[in-house]
């Protein structure tokens, strides 16, 4: 669906326009607040604001309050809300859009480890061209709670013993080209 509502002047782009400008975010204005998304969400009990409330807050311009909450970071991308929403809104895509804006604006919460986990993942994927799971997990624990690593140790060890935890990263040959592509993307910077 295309966004037919006239955009606010560039100097003061409203929060809802900001969310609408991200692919997948445009249908948010047609939400009828039915609550189907919240009722379908396997993790909603942990969210500061439920999925339905998140949509209402975007429309109500409660920007910083929402972006600094833990809400969208609990989205597990199960897409149940997306296939059930009676208005064809894609709440999953909207949660991802909010995560992007929260990280970009430095508002992402410290009460969830998910933002740091995602960033470690991205660094790993960028550097090698492939994700190195052991490396990213170690980095995640060092950056958040090194003691939590102890809780994870048995899982890591059993993966290692079952030849499922390589000690060296896999790297692509075209790392130079990949870097050039990503550098160019950063320079273009528009579709964030």
């Amino acid at each position: 669906m295309t966004n037919t509502i006239v955009k606010a002047p560039a100097a003061e782009v409203s929060f809802i326009d900001e969310v609408c400008s991200i692919p997948g975010g445009e249908a948010i204005r047609s939400c009828i607040q039915c609550g189907m998304c919240t009722g379908s969400c396997p993790t909603a009990s942990r969210w500061d604001y439920t999925p339905r409330q998140v949509i209402a807050m975007v429309r109500g311009e409660l920007r910083d309050e929402l972006l600094s909450s833990n809400s969208m970071w609990f989205c597990a991308s199960c897409y149940t809300c997306t296939v059930r929403c009676p208005r064809d809104i894609k709440p999953t895509d909207i949660m991802h859009a909010l995560e992007i804006i929260a990280i970009r604006d430095g508002l992402s919460t410290k009460r969830s480890r998910t933002p740091v986990m995602y960033k470690c993942f991205v660094d790993s994927a960028k550097g090698n061209g492939r994700v190195y799971e052991l490396g990213m997990m170690l980095k995640l624990f060092l950056q958040t709670n090194p003691f939590a690593a102890l809780k994870m140790a048995p899982v890591g060890l059993s993966l290692l013993l079952h030849k499922r935890m390589p000690l060296r990263p896999s790297r692509i040959k075209g790392r130079g080209e990949l870097k050039a592509i990503l550098d160019k993307a950063r320079a273009l910077g528009g579709a964030k």
């Binding site: 995602y118 993942f121 994927a125 692509i172 993307a185 273009l188 579709a191 964030k192």
Partner: peptide
Amino acid sequence: NCCGSSPYGSVDKL
């Protein structure tokens, strides 16, 4: 290369 999986799509869309 890495597909650009959902954690990546939650950090930088482009």
